[in-house]
Design a protein around this nucleic acid. Sequence first.
DNA 1: CTCTAATTAGACCAAGCGTTCTACATTGGA
DNA 2: TCCAATGTAGAACGCTTGGTCTAATTAGAG
Lengths: 208, 208
Amino acid sequence: MRTSTRPTPARDALLEAACQLFYTQGIRGTSVDAILERAGVARQSLYQHFESKDGLVAAFLNVRDERWCGWMNDFVVAASDDSLERVYAIYDFLADWFSQSDFSGCAFINTAAEYGNPEHPFHILSSRHKARVLNDIETLCKAANLPDHKALARQLALLMEGAIVTEQVTPGSNAAAEAKGIARILIQSRSNKAAPSRAVPLQSRSKK
Amino acid sequence: MRTSTRPTPARDALLEAACQLFYTQGIRGTSVDAILERAGVARQSLYQHFESKDGLVAAFLNVRDERWCGWMNDFVVAASDDSLERVYAIYDFLADWFSQSDFSGCAFINTAAEYGNPEHPFHILSSRHKARVLNDIETLCKAANLPDHKALARQLALLMEGAIVTEQVTPGSNAAAEAKGIARILIQSRSNKAAPSRAVPLQSRSKK
DNA sequence: CTCTAATTAGACCAAGCGTTCTACATTGGA
DNA sequence: TCCAATGTAGAACGCTTGGTCTAATTAGAG
């Protein structure tokens, strides 16, 4: 019998249970039995749709990547029409995320922590996800006409990581607001630097 | 038979093996057997000196906390006599750490990732460690006479976390230098803010 | 020497793990 | 109606896990 990749009720339930459990309990901390119970699905169904537990993990990481990037992009687009405000909205998105009751840090940071070897397939998926996020942030910075947008995006991404783990290790530390404050300083200092004259420009570069 | 807490060759070997393996492979990813083999010690010795695997984990987290903070403080003290330079040296310490062949991120971030529940004893130890680190950074900022040193320390700590996970998930990303660059901007922007006049001060605050 | 504590080697155990297998029920199109 | 796909329930397998037990050996202090 071959493992089918087509979506079906059982497959969906498994993937959904996997998303919740792998994220909140960790991968090694989640047993196949726990997933089956949560999904309310027979043992055989798992191995009908996925090669193994590891196959289910890979599927989880892929949908998590897709969904998370979608959440962030949807949020910043909904947050404002102004492209600079959208950059700042990244950190409002974080604050929103952190306040969710099942927030357990970044699934990909956690996965990279569990599978420390950078050659491990799961670790590779994690760094690929981070590359995509960086790319999305670059796009936002470019849209806002921010100078040196690639370097800025790297800085903003680092702030994001810092906020995520700070809030994870020490919940309630308001790390999203902290990161947003730093981002503001970075962006303002960059705008100043880009100004041709030695004096601080009095009018702001963006329209509104 | 009672578990002895006094240091002895076998106990030391166990703790050392635990430090290496728990750090690089994760806690759940390290079996008792693997520790015994690495320590070159009999099974019984483990349970003579530690209540259980979890007891050994707790011991590991405590010595890791002690050692890591010691490493950082020793590094910044050795780096310079100038108290401001010592603040910046935090990120040189990170670069040094990242370049070590067994670098696997922060043991405490990893532990908090593995044990997501904030009530879990290991998670609590992790956030306690981060509180100590924050305190050490505060002390450095205060020594450098930096205005609003507690708030600044929080920012610098967030940068540190960001650098650590960035380098962990994506090795070779030069995250320590990136974080140091941001720290420089933060500190300079703070110094400007503290200056009484509207103009940018021309002479630097530190002597060298 | 002798007592005591530390250590060793390895069998052993119950529980959990991921995985496979068998057997049966449901269902929807050809 | 029949077929094939999809599902269920649950036993079973082989391996690993953390932890216990027994018995023998080592080594330092009085």
